[in-house]
Design a protein around this nucleic acid. Structure first.
Lengths: 160, 160
DNA sequence: CGGTATCTTATGGGATATCATGGTATTTCA
DNA sequence: TGAAATACCATGATATCCCATAAGATACCG
């Protein structure tokens, strides 16, 4: 599906987590959440990365619909329901656009003091900024290679 | 079918069962029950897991309709009628949103002291928190594999 | 183009409401 | 009438609301 740029989560932002555990959602992300219904954020601890997968109503409804489409008695569906659906945390935004992440979410993403919002288009992730930096270097290499292969679609990579 | 996020049972919550057998329904679940009619909870002991399958009016009506659609004289329908329909327990919420589970339901789900509500979207389950933890690790692996196969839809599983 | 005003944004702290839970009173039904 | 179930009220912890402020960005205007 194609979405307008104003409905996409784009860019990265680092905000502070205060003593009460409050974390301001980037204004740019708030605007796309407003366009979706509700004004809540849905967070799921990733099973394979040290971060939270997040999105608005549209994101979670799409995800839930894809799980609901599976065979109700399959092992796969059961697993997804209990490790995804049952782990979704709905956090509401206060008037200032802040959220409060429950302790177990903060622990699972190693959050402490600061949090990084990374826009992924239809969804976004919340990371410990240091953890994010660690994977960034590795992924830059992969991206560079991917770009080169796009520019030079020859089987054997010709030097630029 | 697609449902709005506010009508879905999402997330997990652990509440205490007091000496009188009362168990508070999570506020988040109460809100979706209110949206459905009645404000009662329908519980069915699972035939294959140590838990209770639960939902509101919408859940039970959908389930009953799918059974009613079966051939009236089939073995399958007869079985479902007696292992599902006949075992449904309707429990009402008090003013504080608490339910009281009859003894045979508590026993069938090994409930004692604490109960875990696990949202599954259109329905939810009630578990003994320890029993739920037991299946979590295995199901996490299945979920991670399911995610990877979505990202890398190759027939032969590529090494990670 | 410079400088000021205004709005937005992120952050801080105090007041208020909600929620889970415990206890007491009242009803219901055998 | 007596026991169990249900309705009603109390409370502490936590989360939500509301107002305040400072810094940055943007707009406006001389």
């Amino acid at each position: 599906m194609r979405r307008g740029a104003e409905t996409l989560f784009l860019g990265s932002f680092v905000n502070k987590i205060d003593v009460k555990g409050r974390l301001a959602t980037p204004a740019r992300f708030r605007r796309v959440l407003d366009l979706e219904r509700g004004g809540a954020i849905y967070c799921i601890p990733s099973t394979d990365e040290k971060c939270l997968d997040c999105g608005g109503a549209f994101y979670i409804e799409t995800l839930m619909a894809s799980i609901a489409a599976l065979d109700p008695f399959s092992v796969k569906r059961r697993s997804l329901e209990r490790t995804v659906t049952a782990r979704v945390v709905e956090v509401s935004l206060d008037k200032e656009g802040r959220i409060v992440l429950p302790p177990h979410l903060r622990e699972s993403a190693l959050l402490d003091g600061k949090a990084l919002f990374a826009g992924l288009g239809a969804s976004f992730q919340i990371w410990n900024p240091d953890e994010f930096k660690k994977i960034a270097a590795e992924e830059e290499k992969i991206t560079t290679e991917a770009k080169l292969s796009l520019r030079n679609p020859t089987p054997a990579g010709a030097a630029p």
